[in-house]
Design a protein around this nucleic acid. Sequence first.
DNA 1: GTCTATAACGAGATAGAC
DNA 2: GTCTATCTCGTTATAGAC
Lengths: 207, 207
Amino acid sequence: MMATRDKLIDGAIAAIREHGIAGVSARTIAATAGVNQALVFYHFGSVDDLLAEACRSVTAARVAVYRARLADVSSLRELLDIGRTLHRQEQAEGNLAVLAQLLAGAQNDPTLAESTAAALRIWTVEIESVLHRLLDGSPIAPVVDPAGLARAVSAAFIGLELYDGVDPEGASAAFDALERLAVLVEVIDDLGPLARRAARAKLRHLT
Amino acid sequence: MMATRDKLIDGAIAAIREHGIAGVSARTIAATAGVNQALVFYHFGSVDDLLAEACRSVTAARVAVYRARLADVSSLRELLDIGRTLHRQEQAEGNLAVLAQLLAGAQNDPTLAESTAAALRIWTVEIESVLHRLLDGSPIAPVVDPAGLARAVSAAFIGLELYDGVDPEGASAAFDALERLAVLVEVIDDLGPLARRAARAKLRHLT
DNA sequence: GTCTATAACGAGATAGAC
DNA sequence: GTCTATCTCGTTATAGAC
């Protein structure tokens, strides 16, 4: 038997998945959770605060699944494999959709903005540490910024999820294109000092 | 003097910008437009249909601004420059935010899904044709897919916009990281057949 | 902690006067 | 084409019985 508080958190996540951020309410959440509507306010004070808590909850749970696997990664290729698996899995379970909806709602809601920012930070911190480990010794280290790249990956996952909702084939092609770009990075990585010097020169011109 | 129909379309866009997709209603739109609430239903039938029309309207207007400029692009560097300008401009005017909110709403709304898919198609068709023109002769042509890449760019802009709403510094770092990756593509492009062969071999392993 | 009942309000949508 | 008025329903939130 599950505590009402937890039922409401799970109900909130399911309701966002099903109705989107524009369709969630204390009533839809309570109905999904199978509890009385008034309990939303008793346990969380407001719908907003429940959504914020749900955001924290789902993020902690999902990151925990991948933390160990990410810690074992020792090559860019392996990282790409995990990235593909993570994308497929989280997309299928609807966790990416939930995060995307919360993030959309956060644009006009300070409470949600805080919790989604924290959620994204938890993901990017994890990705960033792997990228640091993999890239610090590589010849392209001076060219790539692990912190920025980790955030870019997170943003891309969100954007691709929303794209997928209205054009699945297009989103799939986009994901493949990004994967190939990542392989290009590997190619430069293998070419060694020659490419490294060329890349550095190019980047100097940019700034 | 502006026609009421157009006032409502502009009002809808402004209301999405201000309140997000979860906060728009016939009342908020009409108030923003400065017209009576009942006119939403007289002119468009439903709020949904007004939003769909607003989506088409804002997309057509914004793409028109860049179409000529994109047609003149003759190098990857120039394309990156326009991309940066476009991102800065559309972000500042809130047009990216509007598209992101519409896309989020589209995930659970077939009417909106159709119009946002059309909007994204209009953008990607434009980008794709430029990429084809620039990359078809290049040594990395067999490695990159212009259609997929154009969609990836669109998705990334959406994702970065949402990210920016909750963490502006992080989003800025992410954008910079992606720009540097694009420069890496240029580097490979310049290295010629050597890198081309290496990239092809890598990609064969991937599939 | 959980329920019913209800207050107070905003939502989509329509009817009918002008 | 535009307005007022209104219907019906869903919304957040609270009071109070159990």
